[in-house]
Amino acid sequence: MDLLLEGLLRALEMIASGDPEILEITWRTLRVSLTAVLISTFVGIPLGILFGLKRFPGRKILLVIINILMGLPPVVAGLWITILLWRSGPLGHLALLFTPTAIVMAQVLVSLPIIIGLTSSAFQQIDEKMILQIKSLGATKLQSLLILLNETRVSILAAIIAGFGRVIAEVGAAMMVGGNIRGETRILTTSIVMEVSKGNFDIAFALSFIIMTITFLITFCLTFLQQRSRKV
């Protein structure tokens, strides 16, 4: 109980005093996670729509693979990216290992399948008749796509929220490919792991409040977007 109060007070104190290191870590966490979610969203939604609406050979196999990857353990993603980025690995000459970019790559790898998978299932649920109706009313392809996107908005935002949740919670891969380097790749989750291993439970606890606060704020905004009443 004491620890809880202490941690909460410490968190408020850290935020109020504007501890530059905490601000920097929080800012980096936001930047890395949001970049990863943005990439996953802008790649994942078109692919999800494609897999949901179009029928082409190999589609089912692709969907199986995506569904498997939705459960990809972050440490596995981290390990794969590490091997890829090693100096002796295929992308070694880019010197990307232990940079924020490497963390973004790992986070895209774990969040992209979720966004593709959830988007495609939303589009698969659209009634065929509705698509016919839109066409018969003379909508252009772009117009019908916009109508369908509006129709599936709730599910698509749910996909983005799930992807964001995966990314912000991720620690194993960020530790492995980022290396938790102070001032470069240290993010909130990896600092929590480090502070716990240092025995600084109060700081770890304070950091946990900070990460929960930013998660709350972002999820709140996304949920608000999702639940906004539909304009016809």
Binding site: I39, P46, L50, K54
Partner: peptide, 24 residues
């Protein structure tokens, strides 16, 4: 059309990458 749509999205993605990482 899906193809066109995809291309547009990828161009958008590129632009976004540039802006999103502008502060990085």
């Amino acid at each position: 059309n899906t193809k066109k749509f995809l291309t547009t999205f990828y161009i958008g993605l590129l632009l976004l990458l540039l802006t999103a990482c502008g502060s990085a």
